[in-house]
Nucleic acid binder design. Sequence first.
DNA 1: CTTTGCGTCAACCATTTGGTTAAATCGTTT
DNA 2: AAACGATTTAACCAAATGGTTGACGCAAAG
Lengths: 199, 199
Amino acid sequence: MEESLTTEQKIIEAAEGVFLTEGYAGARMQQIADRAGINKAMLHYYFRSKDKLFELVFRHKMKQFVPQIALTLQDDQLSFLDKLDRFVMAYLEMLRKNPSLPLFILSTMNRNPDLMVHFKIEVGQMVVQVMKDEISKGKIRPVDPHQFMLTLVGMCIFPFLARPVFMGIFNLNQEAYAAIVAERHLHVMQYARAILSVS
Amino acid sequence: MEESLTTEQKIIEAAEGVFLTEGYAGARMQQIADRAGINKAMLHYYFRSKDKLFELVFRHKMKQFVPQIALTLQDDQLSFLDKLDRFVMAYLEMLRKNPSLPLFILSTMNRNPDLMVHFKIEVGQMVVQVMKDEISKGKIRPVDPHQFMLTLVGMCIFPFLARPVFMGIFNLNQEAYAAIVAERHLHVMQYARAILSVS
DNA sequence: CTTTGCGTCAACCATTTGGTTAAATCGTTT
DNA sequence: AAACGATTTAACCAAATGGTTGACGCAAAG
């Protein structure tokens, strides 16, 4: 079936699954080995330690998590709001495919904020610059870019973080919550338009 | 100094601190004992097991976390938006005092969604009902209450979840981020007004 | 004074966990 | 087919971890 996968790939795949759902402290090397269908010693043969393996997984997942909004913003043809629309659509779709990604990243980063150092990220500064330009050009209303991005990205991510809590509080079943997530895009853009649109 | 605290209280306080920052899997009974300044055996003397102690802490923290918006909504004197304003103010203040509460709750609930069963919460249904009433009375614009509450509460909580990531992405220091959090209330209400206000 | 029961502790225990090792197996080259 | 390096495995190890035990202190009750 998946015999085409190399052992190293099988390990990484298994490690991602286990680390994502259990977190670093909750993950067990044996569990990863079982899931990969190999001997526990292989883990240490290919990746020296639990830390090394985790770091590999984390780096990979972090790249997925940090919004690649930079690419979307490059396109000069579109208006800023249309660029946002594209980004929100793509980001929500990615999250739907990786629903446990946000909690994994945020938990890890809270436990060890130093990890951020390894990621020289310019996307933040870039977005702020673009927004300031748009504001000075009068294309969008003046808004604190930090607050705006915090809200915009949060609106996308939060439903995946709070899923069990909200399902409980609002008495929702799987389908009802899936419907909310499916409609999320509309409400995110409704927010963006309400805040940014020049009357 | 704090010799007035009973041993049981010292344990609970220490357990809260450790569980909040380390999570269940990452917390060590020895660590809790050290922090409480007592012997490890005392933990098992007062609370049979790690699970029992954790459950106690979790229940306590869960009560703090679930927005007590119900109380705020009762007051009939205020308009709906003023009620929201009160709630957002109070909730943000609580979060500022308990910055690691959200990640703790959401992590735990994701790991074990069954825990929600223990909390018979009616606040969700109540908020939905109030909003529907306001809508039918024409006091606020028609909005999906679920989407709205998800956004409103998310806007409050998310800054505390994403703190290290956003500090990294936007190159912010402690003070800069604190300033964003301090100003958060304004932007949350700006959202609420933009979405709910009848023109 | 002695007994009783709660609180406290050091020492101990069984299991789990990350990690190691030495032997075996497989594939490729000569 | 011998040799050789890469891969895989079972068995093992030391440390850590949640949990237990028996003794000791001590204040209140008898």
